[in-house]
Design a binder for these strands. Structure first.
Lengths: 348, 348
DNA sequence: CTGTTAGCGCCTTCAC
DNA sequence: GTGAAGGCGCTAACAG
């Protein structure tokens, strides 16, 4: 069946190749690894034997001696989250372009598992890309030296490791400015889990905005990070006097949008809504979602670039901060005249 | 400033632990691996030394000798595809529950890369989960023995490897029955890439349906597999006399839905539309999409179960075929009276 | 019950 | 230029 008579593919060892080619084991190693000081004739002979036998160097053995696995680990809180999916995609392709493999781990949003997985996966790879938005700062700082070289995604930690992040604060500020320009003065912010780093950045941006525009008000509504959380927040939003709502992310915005539509609230006529992230479906909601486009794929690519630098032994790469692009679509519009606005606000 | 004075974490070797505990290297190995025939007092002493030094066994060395890596490889055509994301998620969590790690590779839809990656990743893991919907049958059959143990996702290949798949044919048939029950007789099927296995299954189902219902007609419209392809197919759809359209998948259906809405065609009043997959956003389109819910996460879990069986050395697991659940939402409805239907069919 | 000795498959000084 | 030998860190026979 196969072209050679060997069974148990991949089980051919370097010793057998050496025997077949009539040379020493060391010569095979050198020939196949492109060491220049080998007689070209021998190189040819070895190469011929190698693929006659279907030889493939055992990466494990090679790693054990070289100390490098050609693999990096990635720990994400949730593989179901579109943002991390995009980061993973960018990362995976960038790493593959340099012949690196990617070992993934999904911590299922549990901080304890995160620490565990980070260590376990790091030990079988050359470096770690860590997405741990909710790990407490002190834990993170304790963990980082144990898993170096490491690159952080969407969260900084002093200078313990290079970070690649989106500038959530600046983007939220831009979203506020956009709404302010449309005449909105009373806002509601549906916050994500309180302890996430990106939520803190947004809160800071809101504070800055309010200092710059003392005539504005921003009600903060605690919530979750998914579609259902957004839908559940609808009544709370209607109970405020906000004319524009900034959702923690697109999922929350979509949930809110859906629940509001069911209640007969028109968007953006009665209420403007913004999301965050620009996930693939943001353009396809009704109305299409105005949002801040987080360049997640690029985040993944940059994370690899930083890791690549670390692996090369160069200086610690600069942290990078990418500013999400405000993408105006149909879910935001001019503020309604006050009276009409009041009319729209009747709870269920 | 860790708890111990060791630098270069993870670099503590078993020899150092042995020295520290005043025992032989073998005893450390036995004690730490829970071999019962070790003096409990020694076990304690070894354990103490181990975590005093922060010792962690090197998985590479362990793998080299044991021949097992506790890792499986997964090759997918596109990490950006919601279906594979879900499969990966189910797989990853199921594997993690049994302390297995997951090495991923994204072939970027290129068959050549698929073969390459399958081999490369398989050699550094214990098994391979392969999602290769478009790899030619002969190539697949040639590849499988080289990467065994392997599990196929969404595509069967004789008995060369267990497969875990969704029953696309049966589900499409059910979708057709649903539409037929609503009075539709003329359909359009927007097909995906011709060479995919799941497309073939759907075509078979259509043929069977037409044999069972000779008074029906199904126009086949070639297309791609994404949102834009669906949007691009809108005019072609309108050029047929179909009253119901079956899209290759939800993405295509959403694109079509969007383009039709722009053209003033009402769904489902003028035209019924079905998707396929039930991706996370299918319930949130306008109108919500009637679709066949492919249990992708479960597919991933089952794939792991099969792999787990293979790894355990048991008999080759049965292939599993999961039937997607027809999920009726708002995008399908009763057929319109003929005359009105004709009226709706005017191109842009 | 514990220690000594072989390798797992490979790369890499060393001598020749 | 090439071969022989040591060792990466660990587990699994062997002895004792």
């Amino acid at each position: 069946m196969g072209r050679s008579s060997s069974r148990d593919p991949g089980k051919v060892t370097i010793t057998e190749v050496a025997k077949h080619a009539g040379v020493s084991l060391a010569t095979v190693s050198r020939a196949l690894n492109g060491v220049r000081t080998v007689d070209p004739a021998l190189v040819e002979r070895v190469r011929a034997s190698a693929d006659a036998l279907g030889y493939q160097a055992n990466p494990l053995a090679r790693s054990l001696v070289s100390g490098r696995t050609q693999t990096i680990a990635v720990v994400v809180p949730d593989l179901g989250n579109p943002t991390f999916q995009a980061v993973l995609r960018g990362l995976s392709r960038a790493a593959a372009a340099e012949s690196y493999h990617v070992l993934i781990a999904d911590s299922a949003e549990q901080v304890a598992a995160e620490r565990e997985l980070a260590g376990a996966t790091r030990r079988r790879t050359d470096g770690l890309i860590l997405c741990a938005p909710r790990m407490p700062e002190d834990e993170l700082l304790a963990l980082l030296p144990q898993v170096a070289p490491a690159v952080l995604v969407n969260r900084a930690a002093a200078t313990a490791a290079p970070a690649v992040a989106a500038d959530y604060g600046t983007a939220l500020g831009a979203l506020l400015d956009h709404l302010h320009g449309l005449g909105h003065r009373r806002f509601a912010y549906i916050s994500g889990l309180a302890r996430s780093a990106s939520n803190a950045a947004r809160l800071d941006a809101i504070a800055a905005f309010r200092r710059a525009h003392p005539d504005t008000a921003v009600a903060e509504l605690p919530s979750g990070v998914d579609f259902d959380s957004g839908a559940a927040a609808a009544d709370a939003v209607l109970a405020t006097d906000a004319t524009a709502v900034l959702a923690f992310n697109d999922l929350v915005a979509m949930g809110l949008l859906s629940a509001l539509t069911e209640r007969g609230v028109r968007v953006p006529e009665d209420l403007s809504i913004t999301g965050f992230d620009d996930i693939p479906f943001a353009p396809y909601t009704h109305p299409p979602l105005t949002t801040a486009a987080v360049p997640s794929v690029e985040l993944g690519e940059r994370a690899w670039a930083a890791m690549s630098g670390l692996l090369a032994g160069g200086p610690v790469p600069e942290s990078v901060l990418l500013t999400p692009q405000i993408t105006v679509r149909g879910s935001t519009g001019p503020v309604r005249p006050e009276t009409l606005n009041q009319g729209a606000r009747q709870g269920p």
